[in-house]
Computed example of a mutant assay.
Amino acid sequence: MPTEFAARVFALVDGTDAVGFSRLFALQGRMRFGNAAPMTGPEEIAAGIGAFFSTIKGLHHNVVREWYTGADAIVEETVDYFRLTGDTVTVPAVTMWHIDETGLIDDFRVYVDLAPLSA
């Protein structure tokens, strides 16, 4: 069962709410998704994640395990990607983030191989 914050993160992502997700970030918060270039700040994150969302029909995160130490989180998950073609691809992923002193994300990283999504 994900923690309250993790559940909020994944609900926004699974709802393809790029703007809502970006509001979880500090002004200089950084996000790196897979091997893409890092995005900095809520506006850039919303634009980048929104562009990705336009390439799929939807997605769903299934949390496997979570680890926390202080303000740092590591979440192992499987992610179901619903392709525009109607089929589903499931891949393993790990998401890590750090929460700053204001309660916002200042560093967010997603480690995932999306090659199966385009195969």
Score class of each variant (00 low, 15 high):
residue 1 M to L: 13
residue 2 P to R: 07
residue 4 E to W: 04
residue 5 F to Y: 09
residue 6 A to T: 15
residue 8 R to C: 05
residue 9 V to T: 03
residue 9 V to E: 01
residue 10 F to E: 02
residue 10 F to S: 02
residue 10 F to V: 03
residue 12 L to G: 10
residue 15 G to D: 11
residue 16 T to W: 01
residue 17 D to P: 08
residue 17 D to R: 08
residue 17 D to Q: 07
residue 18 A to R: 11
residue 19 V to P: 04
residue 20 G to R: 15
residue 22 S to P: 14
residue 23 R to G: 10
residue 25 F to Q: 04
residue 26 A to R: 00
residue 28 Q to N: 12
residue 28 Q to D: 15
residue 28 Q to G: 09
residue 29 G to W: 10
residue 29 G to I: 13
residue 30 R to N: 01
residue 31 M to S: 02
residue 31 M to Q: 07
residue 32 R to V: 04
residue 32 R to Q: 10
residue 33 F to P: 04
residue 33 F to C: 04
residue 33 F to Y: 15
residue 34 G to T: 15
residue 38 P to G: 02
residue 38 P to S: 03
residue 38 P to A: 02
residue 38 P to N: 05
residue 39 M to S: 06
residue 40 T to K: 06
residue 40 T to D: 03
residue 40 T to W: 07
residue 40 T to G: 05
residue 44 E to V: 05
residue 44 E to R: 04
residue 45 I to N: 07
residue 47 A to K: 14
residue 47 A to E: 12
residue 47 A to D: 11
residue 49 I to H: 01
residue 49 I to F: 05
residue 50 G to H: 11
residue 51 A to D: 09
residue 52 F to E: 05
residue 53 F to C: 15
residue 54 S to V: 15
residue 55 T to I: 06
residue 57 K to G: 12
residue 57 K to W: 02
residue 57 K to Q: 10
residue 59 L to R: 03
residue 60 H to R: 14
residue 60 H to A: 14
residue 60 H to G: 09
residue 61 H to G: 10
residue 62 N to W: 06
residue 62 N to A: 10
residue 63 V to H: 07
residue 64 V to F: 00
residue 65 R to T: 15
residue 69 T to M: 05
residue 69 T to C: 00
residue 71 A to D: 14
residue 72 D to K: 14
residue 72 D to E: 09
residue 73 A to T: 13
residue 73 A to K: 09
residue 73 A to H: 14
residue 75 V to R: 01
residue 77 E to W: 01
residue 78 T to R: 13
residue 78 T to C: 05
residue 79 V to A: 08
residue 79 V to Y: 07
residue 80 D to W: 07
residue 80 D to T: 14
residue 81 Y to E: 05
residue 82 F to W: 11
residue 82 F to L: 11
residue 83 R to Q: 02
residue 85 T to S: 14
residue 86 G to R: 04
residue 86 G to E: 02
residue 86 G to K: 03
residue 87 D to T: 03
residue 88 T to F: 01
residue 89 V to Y: 11
residue 89 V to N: 12
residue 89 V to T: 13
residue 89 V to C: 10
residue 89 V to K: 13
residue 90 T to K: 03
residue 90 T to N: 01
residue 92 P to N: 06
residue 92 P to M: 06
residue 94 V to D: 00
residue 94 V to S: 03
residue 95 T to E: 15
residue 96 M to L: 12
residue 97 W to S: 03
residue 99 I to K: 06
residue 100 D to S: 06
residue 101 E to Y: 05
residue 102 T to V: 03
residue 103 G to N: 06
residue 103 G to K: 07
residue 103 G to C: 09
residue 104 L to M: 08
residue 105 I to S: 02
residue 105 I to V: 14
residue 109 R to K: 12
residue 109 R to C: 00
residue 109 R to T: 02
residue 110 V to C: 11
residue 110 V to Y: 11
residue 112 V to C: 08
residue 113 D to P: 09
residue 113 D to M: 11
residue 113 D to I: 10
residue 114 L to C: 01
residue 115 A to P: 07
residue 115 A to I: 14
residue 115 A to C: 06
residue 116 P to V: 13
residue 116 P to M: 13
residue 116 P to Q: 13
residue 117 L to K: 03
residue 119 A to G: 11
